[in-house]
Simulated assay, not measured.
Amino acid sequence: MEVGSHLPAQKIADHLRLSRSPVNEALSLLQEKGMLSRERNRGFFVADLALEWVTDAADSIRLNGPDLVTSAYFRIADDRLKSALPDEVSEQMLKTRYGLTATQLTAVLGRIAQEGWAERKPGYGWQFSAMLTTPDSLMKSYRLRLALEPAALLEPGYRLDPKVLERCRAAERHLLDGGIETDTADQLHDRGVRFHESLVEASGNAFFIDTIKRVNRVRRLLSYRSMQHRERYKKHCKQHLHILALLEKERNEEASEALREHLQHTLDALSRIGDILEP
């Protein structure tokens, strides 16, 4: 963020799914450390500081340390895939099992609920919803995508915005430049999701768009496991770039066929690593 940028507490609270109280406490702490300034009746703003000082300050308040919320999220996901968690759980049990504060647990459960694999029960506790927990269910999701995504590229009036196309291209180049080895499982999954959803969104067909987004939400957990074999991503990136080049030239029929081959290649690759997807 640029120097002088406003940090509205309510917007941050909404984004993090928290109340304003912990957000205001965090902003006040950053102000005490000199990273933010505060104006009466206006709120907090990014202060003018040297980058080195900001890094030192971040270290001093442990902003650069491990992300406990993300860590707990993956532990819960892995335990769920291993059937180590029951279908219904209490918040107290989760806090004790994963060593989380109430605020941290709220953040974790907010993310899980948004992704659609757990929901709050009326009155008390949480219930894990039906989701992709077996290799076969992941394969079925790819077969659905195999039928849907190439067809989206052939919709009348299909148009991929040049800015979106370039953003997708830059993401693929980043991976080929080393991101495949250094990006987190989260980042790798989200990069793939953004690519495929961007292509489908350009169809303008709300039914295609809604379906692919629903599939992507529930396949996330097993997708993480498949990322233990990252060597296949280099080929994926090159296939993505080829599809983008065809769409840029408005050769949609060829792009549709290339996308079908790409998804089939992924489906075949996953069938060969089914052992790591098992609980």
Results as ranks from 00 to 15, higher is better:
121 K>Q: 15
19 S>Q: 02
230 R>T: 08
264 Q>C: 08
237 C>S: 15
174 H>Y: 15
168 C>W: 00
130 A>P: 02
123 G>A: 10
180 I>W: 09
108 V>F: 01
204 G>C: 04
118 A>V: 15
194 R>G: 02
102 A>G: 04
150 P>Y: 08
8 P>Q: 08
69 V>R: 04
8 P>H: 08
240 H>K: 08
85 L>C: 01
113 A>C: 11
16 L>S: 00
56 D>M: 10
203 S>M: 06
12 I>D: 01
82 K>Y: 01
21 S>A: 06
73 Y>R: 07
214 R>P: 01
243 I>G: 03
142 Y>H: 13
104 Q>V: 00
8 P>E: 12
248 E>K: 15
19 S>G: 10
120 R>T: 13
192 G>S: 09
218 V>N: 09
170 A>F: 10
247 L>W: 03
92 Q>T: 10
164 V>D: 05
51 L>W: 04
57 A>E: 12
65 G>Y: 12
204 G>L: 02
207 F>M: 12
207 F>C: 06
163 K>G: 02
234 K>S: 14
116 G>F: 09
168 C>T: 00
88 E>D: 10
99 G>V: 01
195 F>C: 07
137 S>W: 11
240 H>N: 13
38 R>M: 08
155 E>R: 15
64 N>K: 14
107 A>E: 06
273 I>K: 10
230 R>L: 05
3 V>C: 04
61 I>H: 03
78 D>L: 03
230 R>I: 06
193 V>H: 04
10 Q>L: 11
